Simulated scan of single mutants.
Amino acid sequence: MKTQYLVTACALSALAGPVLAEGSVSVLTWEGYADPSFISTFEEQSGCSVSATYVGSNDDFAPKLMAGGGIYDLITPSIDTTKLMIDLGFVEPLDTAAITGWDGIYPKFLGQDGIQKDGAYYGMPYSWGAIAFMYRDDAFTTPPTSIADLWREDLKGKISLWDDKSAIYVAARKNGDMNIYDLSDEQIAKAQEALLEQKPLVRKYWATAGELVDLYKAGEVVISNTWAGYQSSLLAAEGVKVTEFIPTEGAEGWMDSWMVVKDTPNKECAYKFLNMQLSELGQCGVANVNGYSAANAAAAKSCMTSEQFAALHQDDPDYLDSLLIWAPLADRFETYTNAWNAVKAQ
């Protein structure tokens, strides 16, 4: 079970100072990124109220922004989707000088092409981790080790897969195609075929952390992919023993970034929010709630114990390099998404 660490006093004082005029900020984000355990402190100290709408997939951002009528101020897409947000004109360049702690972000993340354009940054790295795999301990005498275990006939009706275009990445790796962010049409077709073969074995494609947790608790699912550190900790709290593993075919890595929606009228509160999320309060907030790693190494070192810092690979650059970090799909985004949607439609 993931140990819950208290946010240190330095984190709670990160926003100390005079409270300015009250305002609000609306975020389109992932579960846990606006958790009351740390957001309430921000609201009290900043005078900015926070409203959150949650997504279950990176494929949700574009449709919600298109239909949102300007109701969102900040979004947190992953690194394979940030470039699309920039290219569609949904977000605006960041004033990095107004973001305290920017220089403490891991250089590997600041170097990602997907959060910058024409010399300007559009995304503020926030958290990162792996898309690991997970199984229920009491369902296996021999632990699974491969992506291929999600295609086992003897597990029919007990398998789940994230309802996201990244299912194409999973199937491609099973097929031996490791260039998962630059697949040819033929390779995508092969991945799609593999997913169609798997479909009769799948109990349900999970969309949210809570949905996958409920499936495991009920014993309806015994193996799946997972947001590493998050669903496993929720299950442990419920007394359900599960184990995460990195398959022999490797694991994807992700990084989520905060982006400012273009022409937001709530810019003052938006930047207060960005500063909080990059401070000890926000970085250890997401680490404690979701079990994810922090993008600001300096903040993480200030608010984590040495054990938590090591457990989240904050001091292990080689771990970052071992992951297949999601990359922008450029003009192939629609191709991947359509291939996954076609699987679900059949």
Rank of each mutant, 00 (worst) to 15 (best):
K344I: 07
K241V: 11
L183V: 03
A97S: 15
M304A: 05
S37F: 14
T96S: 12
V27R: 01
Y205W: 14
M276W: 00
G157L: 09
L6V: 10
Q346I: 13
E334Q: 15
L324A: 07
F109D: 00
A98N: 10
R203M: 07
S306D: 09
K267H: 05
A236L: 10
D60A: 10
G129F: 07
T53A: 03
I188S: 04
A297H: 13
D185N: 12
V50P: 02
L215Y: 13
A295V: 03
Y121M: 08
E252G: 12
Y271N: 02
D35W: 06
T76R: 04
A97M: 03
Y121A: 03
M255I: 15
D263W: 01
A207P: 04
E44Q: 13
E44G: 14
F42K: 02
V222Y: 11
I180F: 12
C48W: 00
S37R: 12
L195K: 08
F333Y: 14
A209G: 13
E197T: 11
G104I: 09
Q231M: 13
Y122C: 02
T141S: 10
N179L: 01
Y106G: 12
I188N: 08
Q314I: 02
K272C: 05
D214P: 04
A98D: 11
F90S: 01
S40I: 11
K241H: 09
G56H: 04
T264H: 05
M1Y: 09
A298I: 13
K174G: 08
D331F: 01
S166P: 11
A16L: 05
L215G: 05
G219P: 01
H313E: 07
G176M: 06
T335F: 00
I86C: 03
G123E: 11
A251I: 10
E280H: 06
K64T: 05
I99V: 12
T226C: 14
I71S: 15
T243E: 12
Y121T: 09
Y126V: 02
L183S: 05
A300L: 09
A327C: 07
T226F: 12
C48I: 00
E43C: 08
N266D: 10
Q187K: 01
P328V: 02
L65C: 14
E92C: 08
A11E: 07
R203N: 08
A228G: 12
P328F: 02
V19I: 12
T337S: 14
D331V: 03
L88Q: 15
G285S: 06
A52P: 15
I168W: 07
I223R: 01
A191L: 05
D35P: 09
Q231T: 06
A270I: 01
L329N: 07
T337K: 15
Q187P: 00
N179R: 13
P200E: 11
K156V: 10
Q314Y: 03
L329D: 09
E238H: 11
A345G: 10
A294P: 04
F38N: 04
S13R: 15
A294F: 01
F309N: 01
G229K: 13
S233W: 04
S24V: 00
F309K: 02
K2E: 07
W102Q: 07
P77K: 15
D59Q: 14
A218S: 13
K199I: 04
W128I: 00
Y336T: 02
I39A: 06
V91S: 01
K272Y: 06
K156P: 02
V7K: 06
D263V: 00
F109K: 03
I115K: 06
V50D: 05
A297R: 15
F42I: 03
K204C: 00
